[in-house]
Design a binder for these strands. Structure first.
Length: 449
RNA sequence: UCCGCAGUAGCUCAAUGGCAGAGCAUCCGGCUGUUAACCGGAGGGUUGUAAGUUCGAGUCUUACCUGCGGAGCCA
C-alpha cells in the first residue's frame, strides 16, 4: 500500500475538490474521498465518489484502465476509501454537470458491509449510526446550513460592535430557578450545575463592554420529548447596556434577517437538496409583526370561537405549542409577542411601569410552526425589586449577591435575548426535528453515540 | 411525568390463531451510459424479554424493556 501511494503521489495531478470541478473542465485531477455508490454494467463502472464537498460520478471503461485498477474497483462496497485520477468532462447526464473519466485509482480501505444503504431506514437505526449517518447527503446539507447560521450570527454581532464574552458552563446555582438542571460533582463535595443560560453573566459583561454576547452549549434536564427539544443545545445570547425592550425587538429582527439572507446566499445547493423553498427565507426581512400579549390572547379567543383551537386560552398563562402555531400561522415572517404576564417569566424581567403585572419580555415565534426561536427582554434595574423577586421565587439570595452588585454599582436599563441555534437551523432547513441540526444530538433517551 | 403507537433477516416491511416471506444490503454470476440501475443464483431468523390462554401464538392476555409521535416545560 505504501509503495502504491508513492507511485500515485509522483504521477498524479494535484488534488482537487469536487465542488471545484467546474474550474478544471478538460483537465486531469485527483479526488480523494469515499465511494458513495457503485453501478456496474459488465465492461463499464460508474463509481460515485464523495469527498465532503460534493458527490461526483466517475466513469471507468474496462478497456481504458489497467486490469488491476478495474479489479480493485469492481468489488468495492459503499464507503470504501479511495483516491481516483481522471479527466473532468462536462456532461448533461451528470447531476452536478460534470463527470470524471477515470484513469487510475488507489484504494485505501475496502468496505463490504456499510450499514446505511441507499434505501429507507428508521430513525432509531439512523440515530444509532449517527457517526456514519453524517456522511449522507441530507445530513451533510443540514450541517452545512448550521455552519452558515453560526457564521452569520457571529459576523452580524461582531460587525454590530458586540464583544464575545462567554459565560461559564459550570455554574453554582440555577440562573432562573425554574427549569431542571444537570448536577455534577465539583471538588470537595460541592455540587455544580451545567449552565442553562449565560444570561446573568452577560449582564455583568455588558456593564463592562457595553454590547456583548455569549455563544455556547446550554443544558436543560427537562424531560421534554418533542421535535423542538434537545437536552444539550447551542445558544447565542446578546446583551446590551443602556437598551430597552424595543431595542431587543429591533436587534432580533435584524439578526434573523441577516441569518436568512446569509443562508440564501451561501447555501443554495444545500437548500435544493433539502427541497427548501427559498421564498420562505426571502420573506424574512424587517419589519416583523409585533403583537401585544393582550392582543395575542384576543386572537387565541377568536381561534377558539372559530373552532380552530381546542382549548380556550386563559389570560395570564404561557402559550402552548398549538397556541404558538396558531398565532404565527397568520404571518410569513417571525412574530414578536411582547408584554407577557410577569408571572410566567423569569425573576429578573423588568416590569411595565404602567401595568406592573406585565414583563418587558418578547418571544419571537418563527413561522411554519417552528415555535419560539428567540426569547428575551429588558432586565429589572432596581436592587430592592430584585431582592423581592429572589425571595418570591424561593431562591437563595446569597447565591445572587454578585448579581445584585450589578444593581448596586452603576445599574442602567439593559436588555438582551437568547436564540437557539438548532431551532433556527431547523427552521432555515425546513426540517421536522431539531435532532438532525446538530452532529450528535443529546435527547431524553439518546446519549449515544 | 402523562397520553397514544410500534418492536419479525443487517435495513425497510408482509404474514385469517395453522409450513416465517419479499425488496434492499452481503456473497457468486451476467450486462459498454447506469441515475435508489437491471437480470439470474446463494447464504441469512430464539418474531424485544418473561409469564399466561390454546391441540397449536409472530398474531390473543399481563408485566417489563426499547424506541417513535404528542403534551407539559422551554430556546
Amino acid at each position: 500500500m505504501a509503495t502504491e501511494s508513492k507511485t500515485l503521489e509522483t504521477t498524479s495531478p494535484p488534488r482537487t475538490f469536487i465542488n471545484q470541478l467546474a474550474q478544471h473542465a478538460g483537465e486531469q485531477v485527483t479526488i480523494k474521498g469515499w465511494l458513495y455508490n457503485l453501478r456496474s454494467s459488465g465492461k463499464i463502472l460508474f463509481p460515485q465518489l464523495r469527498d465532503g464537498t460534493g458527490v461526483v460520478q466517475c466513469v471507468a471503461l474496462k478497456n481504458s484502465v489497467a486490469p488491476e485498477v478495474w479489479n480493485a474497483l469492481k468489488g468495492l462496497g459503499q464507503e470504501s476509501a479511495l483516491a481516483i485520477t481522471g479527466t473532468v468532462r462536462a456532461d448533461e447526464r451528470a447531476p452536478g454537470g460534470y463527470e470524471i473519466d477515470l484513469l487510475h485509482a488507489e484504494v485505501f480501505d475496502e468496505v463490504h458491509d456499510y450499514p446505511i444503504t441507499p434505501k429507507e431506514h428508521g430513525t432509531e437505526f439512523l440515530m444509532d449510526h449517527r457517526h456514519l449517518w453524517l456522511r449522507s447527503r441530507r445530513q451533510h446539507a443540514i450541517l452545512k446550513v448550521r455552519h452558515t447560521v453560526v457564521k452569520a450570527v457571529r459576523d452580524f454581532l461582531d460587525a454590530d460592535g458586540f464583544t464575545l464574552a462567554d459565560a461559564p458552563i459550570f455554574t453554582p446555582a440555577a440562573c432562573e430557578g425554574t427549569t431542571t438542571l444537570f448536577e455534577v460533582d465539583y471538588f470537595e463535595g460541592e455540587k455544580a450545575y451545567l449552565t442553562q443560560s449565560g444570561q446573568l453573566y452577560n449582564e455583568a459583561t455588558a456593564a463592562a463592554f457595553g454590547k456583548v454576547y455569549c455563544f455556547g452549549p446550554t443544558f436543560r434536564a427537562e424531560k421534554s420529548k418533542t421535535r423542538r427539544h434537545l437536552t444539550e443545545f447551542w445558544m447565542v445570547e446578546p446583551e446590551m447596556a443602556y437598551a430597552t425592550l424595543a431595542d431587543v425587538m429591533t436587534l432580533s429582527e435584524r439578526m434573523l434577517s441577516a441569518i436568512a439572507a446569509r443562508v440564501l446566499e451561501d447555501r443554495g445547493e444545500e437548500l435544493k437538496i433539502l427541497e427548501r423553498d427559498p421564498a420562505k427565507l426571502e420573506a424574512i426581512v424587517p419589519p416583523f409583526p409585533r403583537l401585544h400579549y393582550d392582543d395575542a390572547v384576543k386572537l387565541l379567543h377568536e381561534g377558539h370561537n372559530k373552532g380552530e383551537l381546542e382549548a380556550r386560552f386563559e389570560w395570564g398563562g404561557d402559550f402552548g405549542a398549538p397556541d404558538e402555531t396558531y398565532l404565527s400561522a397568520n404571518y410569513d415572517k417571525p412574530l414578536m409577542v411582547h408584554h407577557y404576564p410577569a408571572a410566567v417569566k423569569a425573576f429578573y424581567m423588568a416590569r411595565d411601569s404602567e401595568r406592573p403585572e406585565l414583563a418587558l419580555g418578547v418571544d419571537v415565534l418563527a413561522p411554519e410552526g417552528y415555535g419560539e426561536v428567540i426569547g428575551g427582554g429588558e432586565r429589572a434595574t432596581s436592587l430592592e425589586f430584585l431582592k423581592e423577586q429572589i425571595a418570591l421565587h424561593d431562591l437563595p439570595q446569597e447565591a445572587f449577591e454578585w448579581y445584585l452588585d450589578l444593581r448596586r454599582y452603576g445599574s442602567v436599563p439593559h436588555a438582551g435575548f437568547g436564540m437557539g441555534i438548532e431551532r433556527c437551523t431547523a427552521w432555515m432547513c425546513g426540517i421536522e426535528h431539531v435532532r438532525e441540526t446538530i452532529p450528535f444530538p443529546r435527547m431524553l433517551y439518546r446519549l449515544r453515540p
